[in-house]
Design a protein around this nucleic acid. Structure first.
Length: 556
DNA sequence: CGAACTTGCGCC
DNA sequence: AAAGGGCGCAAGTTCG
């Protein structure tokens, strides 16, 4: 059973039960207490149907209501449009109903960037095109999209994908709601230790000022702005040292007294600017960091975040992520997910055998690279990312000889991209078509040397993108299935435990300490469930390393 | 003057 | 050891 739901105003809303096929099975229900009504209906185990989890669910969570399942029309629309190569078209309910009714399609006004911790307020909703009733619009768009989905050759995969993506959207809202446990005192101590005491706003911390002085001294007393790359390059130039840029790895190779303080400055300045005291003020409150996740924010299906840089938390700050007293954090990551995904995608038997080991690269090295794990890894990464520099080409050739199906799979994807064709993930996430400018450059009739060179380069670049897309997007299929399975399992067997963080192939669960073992077991089970759902009966192993810790920094 | 671009680095 | 893929963010610089 589906229940279509449209909120309006202060915790009011309208719902309508639908059959599995999307046909209304009862009258419209009006409620002045949406949260209570949803909680009531939730006991019957429905699948909620709404225009966008990100818009509807946070308010329900704030009122203490969790739902088990939903179908998120924004994601349905997004995945189906992408499947047709229409990545640039707006996805909201207004756009969807306009397409359905043949009306002009309104622009999506993109989600506004959050400035700080979330506040709850009711955003003013624009009227739908043709003044369509929002509840009727949800029902109509859903029915039409289900028909469209059923007619596709990849219907099963896409159905699974929209379910997993909808579950991911629920998980994302719940993660924001619960927040990542964050010890402000630990963070502050760490900053003070590395940078000196907190300075007044706009003033450089003592440690940075001191390093800046040392840098200036090393350049003979002439002022250098260590925050300005051009200034650094010029300063080295005056000393007779030619550097192409001021990147850390470039400077590391330079022998000059300014290098050491510069590298230290860069590292600390980065911490101060990106995750210093103002970050703490802005993003952490009540002992929680509430990241704002954007599910489906990346074409490959990876999540993005809006504000707070939640997916770029420096490793040193993991010290500040500490479980509440009596609670534990279970940190789990899928080890070497992408090569395993490639093994399953391609059906390469020998690579599947290699995946039996928890450390795939060690076995790969023993199998084909004389035990040299470093080379084995470079070869595999080159296959998945399209690397050619240095040794990579030769190593890739070794890999190709030994694992022809696996390497052939990504190379076919690369060729498709070079020719401007779309590629798809296991479940049907679809790469965007290249831009008009790309076709211009690659299809140019200009036979000049420069034009030909540019065309080849653009083609190769796009091939690298599609080569990586099939792996990265299929990994996103797997993690979406994992998240869906895990949040369901946690709810069933680990009361109180909830997901608090997700980063590409890694999750954190905050749980009452006594449930930590159960949580670890459920994560393993969820991984097996995801592998079966996405890849069927594959011999490829997807081991997950799950460990209960008090502090995130103590994981692995 | 603000907008748009560039640079560099954090994470996977 | 670096470079291949994907991001977000902030400061500096240049553009209009």
């Amino acid at each position: 059973m589906f229940i279509a739901l449209v909120p309006h105003g202060e915790n009011a809303g309208r719902l309508r039960p639908l059959s599995a096929a999307g046909v209304p099975t009862g009258p419209v229900i009006e409620t002045a207490d949406l949260a209570a009504t949803v909680a009531e209906w939730e006991r019957r185990g429905p699948r909620w149907l709404w225009s966008s989890t990100a818009e509807v669910y946070p308010e329900l969570l704030a009122r203490g209501v969790r739902v088990e399942r939903c179908l998120d029309l924004w994601h349905v629309e997004s995945l189906l449009l992408a499947h047709q190569g229409r990545h640039r078209e707006p996805r909201g309910l207004g756009a969807a109903v306009a397409r359905l009714r043949g009306l002009p399609v309104p622009e999506d006004h993109g989600p506004r960037k959050r400035e700080s911790q979330p506040t709850l307020f009711e955003p003013e909703r624009e009227p739908l095109p043709g003044d369509e009733d929002p509840l009727e619009a949800v029902v109509a768009v859903h029915a039409e999209r289900q028909r469209a989905l059923a007619a596709l050759p990849h219907a099963d995969g896409l159905r699974l994908l929209v379910a997993a993506e909808s579950a991911s959207a629920l998980a994302a809202a719940e993660m924001t709601h619960h927040g990542l446990p964050w010890r402000e005192d630990v963070h502050d101590e760490l900053l003070t230790e590395l940078l000196g005491p907190r300075p007044a706003n706009g003033v450089r911390p003592a440690r940075l000022a001191e390093l800046a002085d040392r840098i200036t001294a090393a350049f003979g007393g002439r002022a250098v702005n260590p925050d300005a790359p051009a200034s650094i390059v010029r300063a080295f130039g005056r000393e007779g040292v030619d550097v192409p840029s001021a990147r850390a790895w470039v400077l590391k190779k330079v022998d000059h007294p300014a290098v050491a303080p510069l590298l230290e400055y860069k590292e600390l300045a980065r911490l101060w600017v990106a995750h210093g005291w103002s970050w703490l003020d802005q993003w952490v409150s009540g002992g929680r960091f509430r990241a704002d996740y954007v599910v489906g924010g990346v074409v490959s299906g990876r999540w993005a975040t809006r504000g707070g840089a939640a997916l770029q938390i420096p490793r040193t700050l993991r010290r500040a992520v500490v479980a509440d007293p009596g609670w534990a954090l279970v940190a789990a990551d899928a080890s070497q997910l992408e090569p395993r995904v490639l093994a399953a995608l391609s059906g390469d038997r020998r690579l599947a055998e290699v995946s039996a080991d928890d450390d795939l690269y060690t076995t790969l090295a023993a199998d084909a690279f004389d035990g040299d794990r470093g080379r084995a890894k470079v070869a595999m990464l080159s296959a998945m990312y399209g690397g050619t520099a240095g040794e990579a080409g030769a190593l890739l050739a070794v890999l190709r000889r030994r694992f022809p199906e696996a390497v052939g799979y990504v190379e076919a994807a690369a060729v498709a991209g070079e020719q401007g064709r779309m590629v798809r993930s296991r479940l049907g996430r679809t790469s965007p078509p290249p831009s008009a400018a790309w076709h211009e450059v690659t299809g140019s009739a200009d036979e000049g040397e420069e034009a030909v060179r540019q065309g080849r380069r653009a083609a190769r670049d796009w091939g690298r993108f599609t080569r990586n897309f099939v792996v990265q997007a299929s990994a996103a299929d797997w993690t979406a299935a994992l998240l869906g399975a895990l949040r369901r399992r946690l709810h069933q067997t680990a009361p109180g435990a909830h997901l608090v963080f997700f980063q590409h192939d890694e999750v954190l669960v905050h749980t009452p300490a006594e449930s930590a073992d159960v949580v670890c077991a459920e994560i393993t089970a969820a991984g097996e469930e995801a592998s079966r759902l996405v890849f069927g009966r594959t011999p490829v192993r997807f081991p997950i390393n799950a460990v209960a810790v008090e502090c995130y920094a103590d994981a692995k």
